[in-house]
């Protein structure tokens, strides 16, 4: 008993210390930084001074007050959460039928189909976003086609590039596999006899889906939603490259604070809010997932 206990601890030591050093400690540093003053040339100002034998702490709530001075940051948060929710919903809408199709296809085809789902991971994330920049570019075939169609109906041409639409399309594209994989893992385990039984007891195709397949798949839906929602909430590369001024998200502002404005403390404030939002989302998703799991 005792030795088993020690072995378990030994095995969890590397991941635990990794998380402690690279996640917990930086988070605490960030939290602390959000109460400090910015340094003159970026970075942070000293947090205490020693003058005339007296120790003084140079800490402030200014950074946090600044968050609420205008509604621009809160609106940006709301917008980012909106983007993340929309992306998650679109991923469910597109990913669910795909996962269901793979789970119900003959066993010998499933591995190949799954491979196709994760195939995009074989090329670099940034390369794939650049590909979308080409697709959306004003001289691209897609824009040409849409605009000539619009022209027929006498409508003004549009630009696909640098718009919230471009950001959402790309966010969905990048995160779709994270929805499909947990959904597939869940759907693949469903007992086909349950659908036979439901049909036998009088359920039409539509009701078999909504009364049997969908409720049993909810833990998969929540798992996929967490995997999509959290990274989308903190995404800056896609809005940076495709979003223009309309399409920016909160993470772009955070990056701006650290890199361009050199205001680390305020950047820390925004980061903390984002972290709390993400943690809340995980807890919420885990709670629903657990509930759905319990009623199985």
């Amino acid at each position: 008993m005792q030795t088993k206990h020690w072995q378990q601890r030994l095995l969890t030591l590397p991941p635990m210390s990794y998380l402690l050093i690279f996640f917990a400690v930086p988070t605490v540093i960030m939290l602390f930084a959000s109460f400090r003053y910015a340094g003159e040339y970026g970075g942070l100002a000293p947090w205490y001074s020693y003058e005339e034998g007296k120790l003084a702490f140079d800490l402030t709530l200014e950074n946090w007050q600044r968050l609420f001075e205008t509604d621009i940051y809160l609106r940006l948060f709301a917008k980012s959460i909106g983007y993340a929710v929309l992306t998650t919903l679109l991923c469910i809408l597109l990913g669910y039928p795909l996962a269901l199709m793979i789970a119900r296809s003959p066993r010998k085809h499933r591995d190949l189909l799954l491979l196709l789902v994760i195939l995009p991971f074989w090329s670099n994330f940034l390369v794939r976003i650049y590909a979308w920049m080409i697709i959306f570019s004003p001289s691209g075939a897609l824009t040409h086609m849409i605009n000539s169609l619009l022209d027929i109906f006498g409508l003004a041409p549009i630009s696909l590039m640098y718009s919230p639409t471009a950001v959402i399309v790309c966010l969905v594209y990048v995160h779709l596999p994270f929805m499909v994989l947990p959904l597939y893992a869940n759907l693949e385990k469903h007992d086909p006899a349950l659908l036979d039984a439901a049909q036998d007891l009088g359920a039409t195709r539509w009701r078999r889906f909504w009364k049997i397949t969908w409720p049993i798949s909810l833990p998969g839906v929540y798992a996929g939603s967490i995997l999509v929602f959290i990274p989308v909430l903190g995404m800056f590369a896609i809005p940076d490259l495709l979003g223009g001024t309309d399409g920016i998200m909160i993470a772009n502002v955070i990056k701006q604070q650290f890199v361009e404005s050199r205001d680390w403390p305020f950047g820390s404030v925004l980061s903390m809010v984002l972290t709390v939002a993400a943690v809340l989302a995980v807890l919420l998703g885990a709670k629903f997932g657990q509930q759905a799991g319990q009623t199985r």
Partner: peptide, 21 residues
């Protein structure tokens, strides 16, 4: 007649009770 509209029911080998209900 599709199975859902036949006036007969089946008891399956593994019972096929709905686990979420």
């Amino acid at each position: 007649t599709p199975p859902e509209r036949r006036p007969l029911h089946t008891i399956f080998q593994n019972y096929a009770l709905f686990p979420h209900m």
